[in-house]
Every structure is written in C-alpha cells, then in structure tokens.
C-alpha cells in the first residue's frame, strides 16, 4: 500500500499492514533553552500563562529532588506532569465525561531543576477515575538520559487496587507515594539511578 506522503524511506511491514517505525529518542541534552520556560509553566491549574488558576479542587504543591547515582542532584532536568482534574476527568475525547471536565484546568505543566536539583509543581489534588487511584504522571528528561524516564506519583491513601501500582513489585510500591510535607505540600524525589532499594520505579513507555 503506497502512502500519499511516502518518500520511500522507513516503510516496513507492520502488524496490521504497512506502518512507519517511530523515531529514536535522544537525550534532551544540557542546553534545553531557558527561554522556553515561562513563569507559571509549572502551574497545572492554568490554561494559559495569564489565566486565573482553576479553584475547583484543593491546591497542592508537589516538589522534590532529581538525583542520579550516588544521590547527587541533577541540574537542568526537565520534568513534565500530566493528570486529570480534581474530579478525575480529562478534557480529551478519550474521556467519556470530557464535557464535564473542569474548563479552567489544564492538567499539564513543565518544571526544571535548579542548581540544587529541586523542582516543584503547583496543581489541584487529582481525582481518581475507574480503577485508577489519584495520581500524577511524570516524564523526566535531561543530559545523560537518552530515553525519557516515566513514573507515576501516588498520594497517601488507598492505591492498593490501582492497576499501575499493582504492576510494580510490592517492595518498590512505597517509592511511588509522595510523602506529606506541610499543609497541602507533598514531596517526591526522583532517584534516576540507585540501588535496588532506593531507585524510583520507572515504566516502559
């Protein structure tokens, strides 16, 4: 089957006919432009940098460190967060209740680590949906990381039945739970590379 924009390269038979293989991931490197960041990018409650933050839920701060082997902080790591709104809905066609989603809440944000390896996000406490416990998905990119590292942050409470949590070996599950750190503040350190007892569990993407 010839595709309209087939330029003759990279076409290989796939499971269900002819498909193009995806591109290789590469590191984001040390020089991701600082002027790509704007104030408020790490605030998931805002649809635009100037919009008022959504107040339909409990505002929380999620913060922590990104660490590499030896517990050394990583500077200039880029983190992206994605979550449903406070009622567990997405403004997205894949959500059957998209029409009820919070119209002011974006659910996405980007942060980067400072000289001490710290990041922070401001958001609303996510709601659960179906069998998913409240959670925030994180993508971590940086120099030395050829592939984006993906993990999921859970909150203290009932996440035992969450299917993603259940995919994680039991001993590692507590490492996916943010710990309370002041009023409406949660701490979640990302340990990119550590021993079997400390490394953050990451997921195949």
């Amino acid at each position: 089957m010839k595709r309209e924009h087939d330029d003759g390269r990279g076409i290989a038979p796939g499971d269900d006919g002819f498909a193009i293989a995806p591109m290789s991931e590469h590191t984001i490197g040390p020089f991701f432009p600082q002027n790509f960041f704007r104030a408020g990018d790490n605030d998931l409650r805002r649809r635009t940098p100037d919009a008022a933050p959504s107040a339909r839920g409990q505002a929380i701060t999620l913060h922590g460190l990104v660490l590499r082997q030896g517990g050394t902080p990583c500077v200039n790591m880029v983190l992206e967060a994605w979550q449903p709104d406070a009622a567990g809905r997405f403004d997205h066609p894949a959500d059957p209740e998209a029409h009820l989603a919070d119209p002011d809440f974006l659910g996405w944000g980007r942060a980067w680590t400072d000289a001490e390896g710290r990041y922070s996000f401001i958001t609303l406490m996510p709601g659960g949906y179906d069998d998913r416990a409240p959670h925030i998905n994180l993508a971590i990119m940086g120099a030395g990381l050829m592939r984006t590292a993906r993990t999921t942050v859970f909150f203290p409470g009932d996440h035992a039945a969450d299917p993603v949590m259940q995919a994680v070996p039991p001993a590692a599950r507590p490492r996916l739970v943010a710990r309370p750190d002041g009023e409406h503040r949660f701490r979640f350190d990302v340990i990119l590379h550590g021993d079997a007892a400390t490394e953050t569990p990451f997921f195949q993407d």
Binding site: R68, Q69, G70, T72, C74, P84, F90, H92, A94, D95, Y129, D130, R132, G142, A143, G144, L145, M146, A149, R150, P163, V164, A167, V168, P169, L192, H193, G194, D195, A196, E199, T200, P201, F202, F203, Q204, D205
Partner: peptide, 15 residues
C-alpha cells in the same frame, strides 16, 4: 550515572 539500573516496569495503559 543517570540511566535507571532496573528494567522498566510494564504497566497497563490507562487514560
């Protein structure tokens, strides 16, 4: 020093 040592966990894909 940055690449995770453990193999990635295979998870179900949800919304």
């Amino acid at each position: 020093t940055h690449t995770p040592a453990a193999p990635p966990v295979i998870r179900p894909l949800t919304r």
